[in-house]
Write a protein that binds this DNA or RNA. Sequence first.
DNA 1: CTTGACCTTACAGCCACGGGAAGGTTTACA
DNA 2: TGTAAACCTTCCCGTGGCTGTAAGGTCAAG
Lengths: 136, 136
Amino acid sequence: MNISEAARRSGLSAKTIRYYEDIDLIAPAARGDNGYRQYDSKAVEELHFLARAREVGFDLLECRQLLELQRDRRRQSRHARQLVLEKSQQLQTRIEQLVAMQNVLQAMADRCKGDEGPECAILEDLAGASEGEGGV
Amino acid sequence: MNISEAARRSGLSAKTIRYYEDIDLIAPAARGDNGYRQYDSKAVEELHFLARAREVGFDLLECRQLLELQRDRRRQSRHARQLVLEKSQQLQTRIEQLVAMQNVLQAMADRCKGDEGPECAILEDLAGASEGEGGV
DNA sequence: CTTGACCTTACAGCCACGGGAAGGTTTACA
DNA sequence: TGTAAACCTTCCCGTGGCTGTAAGGTCAAG
């Protein structure tokens, strides 16, 4: 099948598939007489694997490692598990950061009247408060 | 004061301050006889404002809008509030995405033995499951 | 025979900077 | 006075993970 069909089936874009080939994440695709890339179901499976790994937050370097494990018959599942737990921890950290940011935003919004006037707790907060300035 | 002192006081890096000037986010700094950028406390306040806005998740386009409001005496606080609420909503969406990803990772890790053997629920999940394949 | 949907490569751009080169200035100290 | 370190300047490249666009070749339908 051609690249757009492989894209449709794998969940990646054709652009992305070419890019993955470019950076040697996947092996160069076979080519037809016309020079078009050809994909079989095995290739599509690998692409789909990558799409899934990206969806759950792995970057391309980690995808490379996961793909190596996937290809290695003598792999040890603890390596995959390690990658997953590390990624989970990274997500946890990031989530906590975002929640903290959101809490600050909510606190700002709560204190701002949000009317037609210029007085604005949000802008005052952004201007002044870094810590210890505007306590209760 | 020179740029590194302004950086220290504002919480931005000198690089970032120059970059903000480059993209016209802030006005070009005054220059001393030697060509060095000079900052007064008013300029530092604006830099600090930007640092705070970035910390809570605003991108540079939004920072531009916030800065306009901050400079405008006839602003309406509802505009700032609107920006904050939109950003909060964006963070909420992103947080939910990350939590969903993390749940998937945790579910994978829970089902993987993580031992010396090659059998690995994680790699099977990444390879196969997209939806409806691996039910209860 | 043309139209449109594919495919190819190659290069630019996105965001928000950071790194580093190559050079000028200032400051501290021997 | 010399010099070394610590500043400062501009400039351009690299990051991640793509997407967009240009300029062309190919293929299937009518």
